[in-house]
Design a protein around this nucleic acid. Structure first.
Length: 890
RNA sequence: GGGAGCUUAGCUCAGCUGGUUUAGAGCAUCUGCCUUACAAGCAGAGGGUCAUAGGUUCGAAUCCUAUAGCUCCCACCA
């Protein structure tokens, strides 16, 4: 078989993915094995793969593949999220491009367009995941708007409502004037903005003949500082602090709102910051959350001057129909014209923006649905604080606690059509019923009104949809059993849910810790009797090399598909994993993918070498090959133990680095080079079998990280049955290794490197054999190996007698000499030895100083003192050796 | 404004309960090699006052305090 000198991933990756699928290797059914479950964080149904997904799903695939190879029944459930705001926004934009406006469509017509869009774009992202190698159980594919899933969402709403945990109320919400919907606090991004602070004069309504304040002049105005002058038409009071001396004269007065000349009272409240601006606050209860609270407290009128789209309505009296920011510009000019603008200052402040549409959020009063969070949050908080559920890295526990203890009620209604419609039906008299469907609603309505003639057409279902997270918080439950919460009448408990729940690991981004992770925990305790996952691995954010978050807007995100085409999926997977410890940001660099690709090529060529060997069973195994095999066996064991430890701590990049070095440095550069037979000769049967065995183990260790190339080579390594796959082979096991064996070998490696250095500095080609003398401790059984790798004609014990033309080096306290004859540069050698001598003398001096310190001898543990003594003795031995060598140079 | 975290080689990071020969890795760099598995390679080498200043200790990259710089999260100062 001819194998190309370059590894070509594109030919191979598609082939093996199809093979795994054809043999149902990703599919899981409950059985007697221990389950290992991951539910995918469902990407937006119409989204495309970005670098964050690449990282996230690579990590999940590594964990799932490894669990599978550990004999667990691994199940990775894929699926998508309907993402109500994001998807609806895309559909609205697409329709607008075609000249169709949402407002002109009926709900049914719009939903038809949305479904069409979903069918067209939905699942693109899943095909991309397949290219990455994701070993999801595609038979378990789910979607948050599937019929069954939707039923579950509705049932949960009804259940919470019946438990009194859902209520309807007028609240100040974050209004997105572009998407025309309320959004949750978590969907508001606060950005710092350089705005302006406008000082506006409100005329004080004076009684006839106003008395002048003591020691001052009569004051016609009170000055109010605001960043939002366009809201003054909604003002219903001006507030001062009760103990503010400079505004005390305003007490009990009324002032006139500029331009519209409405008379409003001065109120007093301790909320006011005396130091800010003039100490006077204009109160606009309809358009500011704080003002709303003030308004409630002081029973102020609420005047809502905005339309839903951010334009002003007739209640504003002026600027009606104009956009809020245009009005801000205009009103400033108009105030100035009538002399009511005192001054304008630059002012740095935070403004809330909608995460989805990036427009400034408008605080707005409206009727919305809320979930009471207090009771739901309790078990979810305890789970994390008591380590029942573990966060990786644990530092997120603090943030989590902070959020969960200051949690506010969750506004779950969205003024959207794409999503789960709120199952509330309004009666003609304004009352409402909550039910799973319209028939049930009618029954309830009849009972409520005691009106038997009530018809379904008399009921009007709520027009709003539920927040996307109100469906995705059920994800780990509903993908296994959409009948939770049940009616309580079920006879057969759901087998899948019993077997797969709770899931093992959840891999997701820290930015949705509260959106999603916390709420899944709440749902788990509320409806599934316990936590939904044991471990939460929080990934970092993928950034470009300038440290910026990768985003579409910046255009700094590489196209994942193009990357995989260029470097292979395995190469990109390795690139993603190389620098991504849990919770750390990932500074992405294509060079990392290149490194991954190069590694694939290395693996490929190692295989080409081993594959090309002709085995001769009659040939005896050379001593160096036997010793190398022994060494590598122990090194392999050590690495397996270390990798297991890394995996236990979710240190995936370190585990990968260990197998990378084991394969490249130890297996290729050392083991294969040692056992490689001279060109054209056959290899002995024992070594041939051992090398293949090692290769097999290495492929198993590599497989979770690089599934494609490992499968390809494993299939070539020996004949396999149809349907056989590396992904189902057990991981290598080890619990101990021989440390001495590794240490002895390492010393020989250093000796070999030292001889090579001598060759390079002295310009002695490798072909020219050298002699070596060894004085001191060394494992002689490794000398044949040393001889082969350093190309030595002989290795002799002791020092070379009387010869001056010798170059030497030290490893530990063992001296090595290489006679060089005329090639030796005595002066250069002396310089080197003198430098070394000085270093050793300083070293010994430092150790001695430590040992002379009585308090050190007294306080330090015996072992540490003994170790320092050995350091001194070794150092002195080395000094003696160097001095002898210097003497020999004379 | 409150909270959390970070600062170790040119870059990205390990370094766990203070001591393991005067700090490790990968990448990058430099030098020499087209040696019949691989130049996407081989061999070798160089590179760090562990952010700064104090303190605790026989002993500090590691523990404590302060300072500086960076990052993230939360929060209604108009």
């Amino acid at each position: 078989m001819e194998l190309s000198a370059k590894y070509n991933p594109t030919e191979i990756e598609g082939k093996w993915y199809a093979y795994w699928m054809a043999h149902q290797l990703f599919h899981s059914e409950p059985d007697e094995r221990e389950p290992y479950t991951i539910v995918i964080p469902p990407p937006n149904v119409t989204g495309v793969l970005h670098m964050g997904h690449m990282l996230n799903n690579t990590i999940q695939d590594v964990l799932v593949r490894r669990a599978r190879m550990q004999g667990k029944n691994a199940c990775w459930v894929p699926g998508t999220d309907h993402a109500s705001i994001a998807t609806e926004a895309k559909v609205v934009a697409k329709l607008a491009n075609e000249g169709i406006h949402k407002a002109d469509l009926t709900r049914e017509q719009f939903l038809e367009y949305a479904w069409e869009w979903t069918r067209k774009h939905g699942g693109i992202i899943l095909e991309q995941l397949k290219k990455l190698g994701a070993s999801c159980d595609w038979d378990r594919m789910n979607f948050t708007m599937n019929e069954a899933y939707s039923r579950s969402v509705i049932r949960v709403f009804v259940d919470l409502f019946n438990k009194g945990k859902i209520y309807r109320g007028v609240r100040m919400v974050n209004w997105d004037p572009k998407a025309l919907t309320a959004v949750s606090d978590e969907e508001v991004i606060h950005k710092e903005e350089l705005g302006r602070l406008y000082y506006i004069r409100y005329k004080i309504k004076q009684p006839q003949n106003p008395p002048a304040p003591e020691g001052g002049t009569p004051c016609d105005y009170c000055v109010v500082a605001t960043t939002r002058p366009e809201t003054i038409m909604g003002d219903t009071a001006v507030a001062i602090h009760p103990h503010d001396p400079k505004n005390a004269h305003l007490r009990g007065k009324t002032v006139i709102v500029p331009l519209i000349n409405r008379e409003v009272p001065i109120i007093e409240d301790e909320y006011i910051d005396i130091e800010f601006g003039t100490g006077c606050l204009k109160v606009t209860p309809a358009h500011d959350a704080n003002d709303y609270l003030l308004g409630e407290k002081h029973r102020l009128e609420v005047i809502d001057i905005f339309n839903n789209d951010g334009t002003l309505n007739e209640k504003a009296q002026i600027y009606v129909g104009q956009e809020r920011f245009a009005v801000r510009e205009q009103i400033v000019k108009d105030l100035e014209a009538v002399g009511l603008l005192e001054k304008v200052e630059s002012y740095l402040h935070k403004v809330g923006f909608s995460e989805r549409t990036d427009v400034a959020i408008e605080p707005k009063l409206s009727m919305q649905w809320f979930v009471k969070m207090g009771e739901l949050a309790e078990p979810a908080l305890a789970a994390v604080m008591d380590d029942e559920v573990l966060l990786y890295p644990a530092k997120f526990k603090n943030t989590y606690r902070h959020w969960m203890t200051t949690i506010k009620d969750w506004c779950i209604s969205r003024q959207l059509w794409w999503g789960h419609r709120i199952p509330a039906w309004y009666l003609p008299d304004g009352r409402f019923v909550v039910a799973e469907d319209s028939a049930e609603a009618l029954k309830l309505a009849k009972a409520m009104t005691k009106n038997k003639s009530l018809a379904i057409t008399d009921l009007q279902q709520d027009n709003d949809c539920l927040d996307t997270w109100f469906s995705s918080w059920l994800w780990p439950i509903a993908v296994f059993d959409p009948d939770v919460p049940g009616s309580g009448e079920e006879v057969d408990p759901n087998i899948d849910l019993q077997y797969y729940y709770p899931t093992s690991d959840l891999v997701t981004a820290p930015e949705i810790l509260f959106f999603w992770v916390a709420r899944m925990l709440m749902a788990g305790y509320e409806w599934a009797g316990g936590y939904p996952f044991k471990n939460v691995y929080l990934t970092g954010i993928v950034r470009d090399h300038l440290g910026r978050k990768m985003s579409k807007q910046l255009g700094n995100s590489p196209d994942p598909i193009a990357l995989m085409d260029q470097y292979g999926a395995d190469g990109v997977r390795m690139g993603m994993l190389l620098t991504s410890p849990a919770g750390n940001d990932l500074p992405f660099d294509e060079a990392l993918c290149e490194q991954g690709r190069n590694f694939c090529n290395k693996i490929w060529n190692a295989f080409r070498l081993v594959n090309g060997w002709q085995a001769d069973d009659t040939k005896e195994q050379p001593a160096h090959s036997a010793k190398a095999g022994e060494w590598f066996k122990h090194l392999l064991r050590k690495t397996v133990i270390e990798m297991n430890d890394d995996f236990d701590k979710y240190r995936l990049s370190e585990a990968l680095m260990k197998i990378y070095k084991l394969f490249w440095n130890d297996f290729c550069a050392w083991y294969l080079e040692i056992v490689k037979p001279p060109s054209g000769q056959a290899i002995d049967g024992t070594t041939h079998a051992t090398a293949r065995l090692f290769f097999d183990y290495l492929l198993r260790l590599l497989h979770p990280f690089m599934p494609f190339i490992s499968e390809e080579i494993w299939q070539h390594l020996q004949p396999r049955q149809p349907g056989e796959s590396l992904m189902m082979q057990p991981q290598p096991y080890a619990d101990c290794f021989d440390e001495d064996c590794l240490a002895h070998f390492e010393m020989i490696q250093q000796a070999i490197a030292s001889v090579r250095t001598i060759r390079q500095t002295k310009n002695i080609p490798y072909r020219e054999p050298l002699e070596l003398y060894v004085k001191g401790e060394a494992d002689e059984t490794l000398f044949p190996l040393l001889q082969k790798m350093a190309n030595l004609s002989a290795i002799r014990p002791g020092g070379p007698d009387g010869s001056r033309n010798v170059v030497s080096f030290l490893i530990g306290t063992t001296e090595f000499f290489v006679p060089l004859g005329a090639m030796l540069n005595v002066e250069e050698e002396r310089r080197k030895l003198l430098a070394d001598l000085e270093y050793q003398q300083q070293f010994v001096a430092a150790v001695k100083q430590k040992l002379c310190n009585e308090r050190f001898i007294l306080h330090a543990p015996e072992q540490v003192v003994a170790f320092e003594r050995k350091k001194q003795a070794d150092g002195e031995a080395r000094i003696k050796a160097i001095e002898e060598q210097l003497a020999a140079l004379q």
